[in-house]
């Protein structure tokens, strides 16, 4: 399979690789996929509790080049967005941006799931605290 320029760029220069302390109350962690399926994405968001804006994002991914590129792209896209804006990111947008072939669509779905899971995790922490 040949890869699009953008997938190659994200693979060769992945953005925002790393981790935040998952116990930090301003951090939301989403981990989706399974090693048996060949894909695990972990996406972490750092949210400004005052504004509800995602100020930083980090990822680590076990998976093919398209999975790495999808999660790398997701970290770029969520930064500077509010939680609601980030929740609005659809996998099709990732597919289009990275020109993913049909067999790689699941990578974009996983990235969308990772964003949602990270936001859910953050909200759970936040709401838990307020109670």
């Amino acid at each position: 399979m040949s890869y699009s320029e953008k997938v190659l760029d994200h693979y060769n220069n992945p953005r925002n690789v790393g981790s935040f302390d998952k116990n930090d109350p301003t951090v939301g962690t989403g981990m989706v996929g399974a090693p048996e399926c060949g894909d695990v994405m972990r996406l972490q968001l750092k949210v400004n509790p005052e504004t509800g804006v995602i100020e930083d994002a980090k990822f680590k991914t076990f998976g093919c080049g398209s999975a790495i590129a999808s999660s790398s792209l997701a970290t770029e896209w969520v930064k500077g967005r509010t939680l609601d804006q980030a929740l609005a990111i659809k996998n099709v947008e990732i597919v289009n941006e990275l020109s993913l072939p049909p067999v790689k669509i699941h990578c974009s779905v996983l990235a969308e799931d990772a964003i949602k899971a990270a936001i859910n995790d953050y909200k759970k922490k936040r709401d838990g605290e307020g109670r």
């Binding site: 090693p35 991914t61 699941h106």
Partner: peptide
């Protein structure tokens, strides 16, 4: 491996077999 969450977890002593994974919906 620097990019792999599995590697990081394994290094931190997490037994990957015990993690509740979330396979693709």
């Amino acid at each position: 491996r620097e990019l792999s969450p599995l590697y990081e977890m394994a290094r931190a002593g997490v037994d990957l077999k015990t993690v509740a994974w979330q396979p693709e919906r």
